[in-house]
Design a protein around this nucleic acid. Structure first.
Lengths: 150, 150
DNA sequence: GCATAAAGTTAGACAGTGCTAACAATCTGC
DNA sequence: GCAGATTGTTAGCACTGTCTAACTTTATGC
């Protein structure tokens, strides 16, 4: 009940055959991971940019309060994505680092795709943030191909 | 505290200037409405297909249990999107109908876009379900234009 | 029209995400 | 090295969304 839920964007295996229902289940599944993905991606970014990821910076970037971050970090630690010590900044585990990398990859592809479609960078950033968690590997491949054409 | 939260995909007005933070806030905002949007869209569909929307059908389609649907329908009623009477099927209010129509429109555009990109219909359906809630009006316009070109 | 099946509701558990308020630890600048 | 500022934690509340179990109501089939 406390483990990280694996990616099912590409192949949700359980549940009935109806594609609509499958779609809804896939989305619910994805939604469960969204926040964790945002966090690890951001943590990786902060570590890269400033050498460490502090709750206060995470909170500022996400636009939430520090106690909210603290609680969510507890969950991420439980799920094995990060390690942390009291009053210290946050580190990614190997698993967390891998997830962050994967997220960054997806984010980049979606962002480049939207921009190459003709979207302004600001809107592209906002839309990419929302879309990246819901894009199958197959779609991602098409996005990447499109962005590389031209 | 119980009203429906308006669409901020296009123009989140509050919060600081940092575009990344704005993006995160926009996404959180969007996430708050996702489930409601899924419900009203599905309810409209069921009413169209079978003349009425019963909790048991909603539950089956979404892949959740009936009590879950019941509770969520209470919320939607509180928010003025649907009306319902005990042990009776569900109806959309004008507001709900408008939202459903808007959701359907977005869904259609995203779906057609993905398919015209070359994605198989099954995957397109799953991805569209996740993406439709996170697409700005601007992006939607580009998607529509792309799907209509060719 | 009554017994049973199906559908719907209510209650209660539990986890997640957000908040504020109060407290604890750490860091900073003399 | 100590005072005050900053950062982090904990506790407690609210709401959502999911479930199961138990109950009520409605529909169905003789």
């Amino acid at each position: 009940m406390t483990e990280f839920h694996p990616d099912t964007r590409t192949a949700p295996l359980d549940g009935p055959a109806d594609p609509r229902t499958e779609a809804f289940q896939g989305v619910r599944e994805a939604r469960r991971n969204e926040l964790a993905e945002d966090y690890v991606e951001l943590i990786a970014e902060l570590i890269h940019e400033q050498g460490e990821a502090r709750p206060v910076d995470i909170a500022t970037r996400l636009g939430v309060k520090v106690p909210t971050v603290s609680k969510t970090l507890d969950r991420l630690a439980r799920e094995g994505l990060i390690t942390r010590a009291k009053y210290r900044s946050v580190f990614l585990t190997d698993t967390g680092r891998a997830l962050a990398k994967e997220c960054r990859r997806r984010h980049e592809i979606v962002l480049r795709f939207l921009i190459s479609l003709g979207l302004d960078p600001e809107t592209a950033e906002r839309d990419a943030e929302g879309i990246e968690h819901h894009v199958s590997e197959r779609t991602l491949a098409l996005f990447a191909a499109f962005a590389n054409r031209s």
